[in-house]
Write a protein that binds this DNA or RNA. Structure first.
Lengths: 148, 148
DNA sequence: GATAATTCAAGCGCATACGATGAAATCGGA
DNA sequence: TCCGATTTCATCGTATGCGCTTGAATTATC
């Protein structure tokens, strides 16, 4: 019997899901020392970025952009409120909704350009934006395939 | 005073860190329904993949490949042991180390080709492997930059 | 051969992340 | 108007993920 051609099973490092999984851990660790001086966690930072793009959002809108449910977002937003970066208050027109808005302290942070500090660390050079687009596309495709 | 040209601050979706962050969430959700039929979580699955590549590793070696610390890995491995996928036992030569090895049940799972089921869902086509390489490179660059 | 330094897994506290559920407010049809 | 369905946020339980610390075992040094 001839030995099978051995389909060369991919090694762990070659799995895309694993690459994304570990790259996310790497980003978290790279950001940690920068953010912890500001008293922020990585997820809290992402929430602030979303609010810089569009202030005064409801919990649901913010969650849609961050791909998070309210049950995950609520404790994070309460922390950001405690730290004085944001305000949470019920919408008078619809008391079911909680609107999130930046405080001056939260807005001010925007000028720190934290994200730019890590551009070099990615080592991607000119392909940075291509990778960014590809990964975003990957995410959107996966999300869409879940809706079926 | 002339209005500044507005450096066009990147929107949230344009941040690479956010793309990776959300793509990781998307992968987790895509894998969940497949894996939960097998009684596995996403991280538990990644650990099994690492063991398929190389059986009989120590907790430390496994953690190095998965970019996880032993404190994170230990409870995950205990779950996998309870579920009957792996065995944990102290290395007689160095009793500090715990060696992890696959049970028949754990090895058998390899033939399910779970990863292949999601290839189409990524919608990347031929660029799949390019993206995989880019993201792995990104991760390695970030990790290396942390060592400085 | 005793002691100090190192290594390694494990325990603890905190912070996400998600499914299931609950509670309050709103909406919509009879 | 009234009552059930829906929307929206919050709570609870479980599972990662990390920094810090602990305790056991090995290695290095004298």
């Amino acid at each position: 019997m001839t030995k099978s051609p051995a389909p060369e099973r991919p090694k762990l490092g070659e799995f895309l899901c694993f690459a994304v999984y570990s790259a996310n851990l790497a980003f978290g660790r790279a950001y940690r020392p920068i953010l912890e001086k500001l008293g922020l966690t990585y997820t809290q930072y992402v929430a602030l970025v979303a609010l810089w793009e569009q202030d005064d959002q409801t919990v649901g809108e913010l969650g849609e952009k961050m791909f998070l449910e309210s049950n995950t977002l609520t404790p994070i937003l309460k922390k950001l409120e405690q730290s004085g970066f944001i305000e949470r208050r019920r919408d008078p027109a619809d008391e079911r909704q909680v609107r999130i808005s930046l405080t001056p302290k939260g807005s001010e942070l925007r000028s720190h350009e934290i994200g730019n500090e890590l551009f070099d660390a990615t080592g991607l050079g000119d392909s940075f934006f291509d990778v960014q687009k590809s990964v975003a596309k990957l995410r959107d495709n996966l999300m869409r395939s879940l809706g079926d």
